[in-house]
Design a protein around this nucleic acid. Structure first.
Lengths: 247, 247
DNA sequence: CGTTGGGTTGATCGACCTCAATAAAAGTGG
DNA sequence: CCACTTTTATTGAGGTCGATCAACCCAACG
């Protein structure tokens, strides 16, 4: 069997190798969105040499809550669900990481949440220690990392409002508008909202059951505010939805 | 009328002057808890010269959501409620700041939440610009500030679990245990939990109504897990409560 | 005292959950 | 390419936890 005639399994490996070589920052589509944007070309080069290019297939767990953590990630493509589990199985998704997002802001000894790849995910992996040392010699990167953390904190506080004080309909709409805005920074689209996560994931993010999420989608679709597509939703009345989310 | 016989208003001013002179870091009880702990004596001195010692009387608003923000605060004593308001009046308290906490992590152009002093509050105020410039020349402080932001992010994510996936009883218990742990770092007590905030505040922090909060307190008191005191609660069965909070 | 702001308690209601059935989609192996 | 299973999504019926509405208590305070 030659390299030309690969089995499906091998082909899958070929498009999602678990580790690649460095020197890919030049044409990295996440660069402008990620912490890297703070670096000069020669600094980017230095950081690149510390990185290991990873690829996770769909559904793979990247790391788990409470495990010792000695690496951090910069997501370069795909979507990741971040979640905390209670002993009795209840789950709270604390966020979805997209292209350009950084995993490992807390820099603690152990992971404070688990992370699963939703679809195929590519990421730059760094040794936590090496990355931390790099930060010490590159204050600009630390500044940007801190800006990322501050922004994440703001997002988290906004999520508290959604979880604590919003109705089911408002939750779903706020989720869609928020995700739309994040996608738009990545791929520019402002009405198509890809939903790589399941209804269960959305429910566990919003503090709702899967049934309630489904009912709200149906309700919004019936009133022509959106249409449900195979891979997400298309917003028909963004202004109306934004009004609900702002309420 | 002489200076000796002050009116109550003046006396109140005397014990809570709105601005004091610098050079008080030596005997500041918040120093070890706050971002300042990252600084060498001479650096602390330099930062001290940038600070304005403030005192806010009970119930005073320190700053408001959406207002332009050009100062940051380091809380040196007292308790502050941080909250976001929806246009229709619904309120979500996103946190309570205690001694040693830093207000202004997000470093944005405008405040993302409002802040009210719950009791008398003292704080070091800094010009946002000056503080930011100081960070540029003191990477150690930036490191510590980032550690603070990361920690806050963890707390916020834990609060998401509480808001999204916990019952009313679990919410109240988790709140009490969490607050107990924070007080213990400040004043060492591990069973007395001062509650400078109202039931309404607790409800708006946990996504509950004042009635539900009150009922949960009553329930916990009836089963002898705690006693309600004039200024808070005393935990009688901390282990039992911790078990509920950990569930 | 009357007033006011906080807190507690009871009765009732409803938004969302639970349970159950079905439908649709996505794999999987022949 | 098509049966078959598995996973995910939808829809309905009924139940429940916490919200709402309302009354009352109590301490602080002018």
């Amino acid at each position: 069997m030659t390299g030309i005639h690969e089995t499906p399994a091998l082909a899958s490996l070929a498009i999602c190798p678990n580790s690649r070589s460095g020197g890919e920052c030049d044409h990295c589509q996440a660069r402008k969105l990620s912490v890297c944007a703070a670096l000069e070309p020669h600094e980017l080069n230095a950081l690149d040499r510390l990185s290991r290019k990873m690829c996770f297939p769909a559904r793979e767990t990247m790391f788990e809550q409470d495990e010792p953590s000695d690496v951090v990630y910069n997501i370069t493509s795909g979507a990741v669900r971040l979640y905390k589990l209670l002993p009795d199985g209840r789950r709270q998704i604390v966020g979805f990481a997209l292209t350009g997002d950084f995993l490992g802001l807390s820099m603690g000894e152990r992971n404070v949440f688990s992370a699963d790849a939703l679809g195929e995910v590519t990421a730059c992996q760094f040794s936590r220690k090496q990355f931390s040392d790099f930060l010490d010699t590159h204050p600009h990167l630390l500044r940007r990392l801190h800006a990322f953390a501050s922004h994440e904190l703001s997002i988290a506080q906004e999520q508290m409002v959604i979880l604590g004080r919003r109705t089911a309909e408002e939750k779903v709409v706020a989720f869609l508008i928020g995700l739309r805005n994040r996608w738009s920074r990545i791929n520019g689209s402002t009405v198509n909202v890809p939903l790589p996560m399941t209804r269960q994931d959305i429910g566990d993010f919003l503090g709702l059951t899967i049934e309630t999420v489904s009912r709200m989608f149906t309700k919004l679709a019936k009133q022509k505010s959106l249409v449900i597509t195979p891979d997400g939703v298309r917003l028909l009345e963004p202004a109306r939805l934004e009004a609900i989310a702002a309420t």
